[in-house]
Design a protein around this nucleic acid. Structure first.
Lengths: 171, 171
DNA sequence: CGCTTCTTTCAGAAATTTGTGAAGTTAACG
DNA sequence: CGTTAACTTCACAAATTTCTGAAAGAAGCG
């Protein structure tokens, strides 16, 4: 619609803000549907779609039209699940949030902690219901599945790293 | 605590209702934390821990202390994501909900539909941001990761089926 | 050492989600 | 063909979650 150039002077936000926003919201919607809270999803989308892969709190707030508090909460969530990392620019109180591709792929598959807890719950169930009961047997098999999957996911990521280097070069 | 035998006369609910309930709630809590709504999680847990792997609407309602409406909603959800299947007992209006191990493992990994939509969103982003821009490149790599994963998950399930038969015999 | 700037925390408002009771629908059985 | 039993749908009530504005808390800079 408008001339991107004309807006260019407005600053680094330039590019095609419209297109970026469309992608961010669309992508975030998918994450939300997969169970992730909305703000973290949007923040993550914005980082993915940024040129450098890193944005400051202020930039995120402006681009997404949300309060500093919302940024803070979203970023805390994302850091906790290892989807972004925080960086301090030395000599500035500004913080910078970055998405490292390799890092967040791992986060996606490394539901480690989650899987572990499922396994614990299942193990407990097998014991308390009795390994020789039909129900206990079902739980045991489910447990076996998770244990199997755990190992598979690991080797899958190994293969991905190889595959990735072939196509995209070193990270 | 109490003697299970003494309660035995109470009926089919018998077993160690206490232990079953403890497992169900604990396991359901993990599912909830992974993003699944509460009622579907509890219903699914109850099915997993049942002797036959199948329960009627009434049984579920009694065991979990929830209304028929809640059972209905939970079961609809679970059926939609293919974690349980519905069975009609012929000659009765009763319906029976069953968890097939092999079926719900697939459901877990076959986030197919979800992954597809993520991929669509990413493809769109690559185009609208430009494949030659840094951001576009990042999205493209992410897309490649999902595509890679899609294939891997499939072959992983193949391996699981083999692994399973070795340990548990035919389903 | 105080000022300034950025981030986090907190309490409350708003919105969404979740579960219930009651009425409605379908299907078996006499 | 009516009755009854099971499941579903609907509207509303309750609870939880989510986001904001305001104030407090760090950390560089003069």
């Amino acid at each position: 619609m408008a001339e991107p150039e004309a807006l260019g002077a407005a600053g680094a936000v330039g590019r095609d803000a419209e297109a970026v926003s469309r992608f961010v919201e669309h992508f975030a919607a998918q994450l939300v549907e997969a169970g992730m809270p909305r703000m973290p999803s949007r923040v993550f989308g914005a980082l993915l779609a940024s040129d450098t892969g890193a944005l400051t709190s202020v930039e995120l707030g402006e681009q997404l039209r949300i309060s500093p508090a919302a940024v803070s909460g979203a970023v805390r969530y994302l850091a906790q699940v290892h989807m972004v990392s925080r960086e301090r620019e030395p000599g500035s109180r500004r913080e910078r949030y970055r998405v490292h591709s390799d890092q967040w792929y791992e986060a996606l598959t490394n539901r480690e902690a989650i899987i572990k807890r499922w396994e614990d719950a299942l193990r407990e169930g097998v014991v308390s219901l009795g390994a020789d009961t039909p129900a206990g047997g079902r739980l045991a098999e489910t447990l076996a599945f998770f244990e199997f999957m755990e190992g598979e996911l690991e080797s899958m990521m190994d293969r991905w790293r190889v595959h990735r280097e072939q196509h995209f070069g070193e990270g």
